[in-house]
Amino acid sequence: MIEVEGLTKRYGATAVVDDVSLRLPEGRLTAVIGPNGAGKSTLLSMIARLMKPDTGRIRVAGLDVASTAGEVLARRLSILRQENHITARLTVGDLVAFGRFPHSGGRPGPEDARHVAEALAALDLAPFRDRFLDELSGGQRQRAFVAMTLAQDADCMLFDEPLASLDIRHAISMMELLRDLCRNKGKTVVLVLHDINIAANFADGVVAMKDGRIEAVGDTGEVMTGERLSRLYGLPISVERNGGSCIVNYFRSRD
């Protein structure tokens, strides 16, 4: 469960996150969508205490983010950032093992080894375990960072554009994996997505942001309507429901 109340972040006079309040219940997959610069990454960074908000309160799994000890929070909350750059030369296995630090304190036990192996396997990375990060393709590297975030095994997991540079097969299997974590393990997963088709078909709920404000929030079916999406992105968009799946079309409706 993630609760955000009156959250604001300003740079100079502009509020890039403007008085945002949210409740994301546990066991749900929530997609955060919205145009570039909407404030999605800023919102996630503040929830994960990487950035201090100017005003507002955040509670994660009942813990106040501003006052809870970092190590306690790290077992409840993990985040994958939009940009990941590490100067140290690490292998995929090393990186994923770092995700266990909140639990192992640097001395991994069998439980940690199991989580690392599971995370590597889940992201198709087992054969790359001993490869250095700078010897991977962009999508492989992205998967390694996602695996690290998964290995942390927190109750609430935040991912900022986890699908960036993934091929469609890996994108779909990652979404299935995350949905499974919500359904069967009761995790709360929040992810920033630019692919609104993926959001429409996998997310339980959607938060639509624009100019630092929440334009719409609710169940995926409610938020993902042609009218709302057209307004959000400033582009004619139609939503076609076809049996179980939902296709967001931003091509044909242009003429």
Binding site: S45, A74, L90, F101
Partner: peptide, 21 residues
């Protein structure tokens, strides 16, 4: 603190994410 120093190699934000003050 020899173990937590390794985490600093990841940089500020990842270290905070892993619970380092």
């Amino acid at each position: 603190r020899r173990f937590v120093m390794d985490v600093l190699l990841l940089g500020r934000e990842p270290a905070i994410g892993l619970g380092v003050d």
